[in-house]
């Protein structure tokens, strides 16, 4: 069994049914998960910030870091596995985007990340069928490529499925 581990700002995909695609401890970051039933490919991006305009150099080096550059990059990556370039037929799931308690507007990065991602997905004619966003705890995501199953975990609580 292989593991595709994605750090902050990474994106990647796999169609190997024995692989797991995994990202650790999403705080205010949001994981965008694209499941393509046709090619049995799983793609994920670990998005840290909503908008790449604050640092274009970083966006070029790590497009997965920002919502507006991550989704096109992930879709392009998945075409290598025979997926539709505009994501036709893909199942979208979102998780993460937590906030600290009593957060103010400035610190609601989790919420801004989720909103930015949804807007870009809409622009691509895509929408999430399942989401586990917000609240105030960190999430680790593990996707089994073969089963297309998305498992979430957080220290101190039982795992759950998305």
């Amino acid at each position: 069994m292989g593991q595709v581990i994605l750090g902050v700002g990474d994106y990647g995909a796999s169609n190997n049914p024995t692989d797991e695609v995994k990202t650790f401890a999403l705080g205010s970051c949001v994981s965008v998960i694209l499941l393509d039933p046709k090619t049995k490919t799983v793609g994920m991006a670990h998005v840290a910030l909503p908008d790449s305009s604050i640092n274009k150099a970083k966006a070029t080096e790590k497009p997965g870091y920002f919502a507006d550059t991550a989704i096109p990059a992930l879709l392009a990556e998945m075409t290598k596995y025979g997926c539709h370039k505009k994501g036709k037929g893909m199942v979208v799931k979102l998780c993460g985007g937590a906030n600290v308690m009593d957060t103010n507007d400035t610190f609601q990065i989790g919420k801004r990340n989720a909103l930015a991602i949804k807007k870009i997905l809409w622009a691509h004619g895509m929408g999430a069928v399942a989401e586990d966003l917000g609240e105030n705890f960190s999430r680790t995501v593990t996707i089994s490529v073969g089963a297309g199953q998305v498992t979430l975990s957080s220290p101190g609580r039982p795992n759950w499925q998305l």
């Binding site: 401890a25 705080g27 937590a98 906030n99 600290v100 009593d102 957080s154």
Partner: peptide, 17 residues
């Protein structure tokens, strides 16, 4: 903590002043 580097079960479970 927001960047994903808390210390486990308590991460994000504090109040912002």
């Amino acid at each position: 903590m927001m960047g994903g580097f808390g210390t486990g079960s308590d991460s994000m479970r504090y109040r912002l002043d």
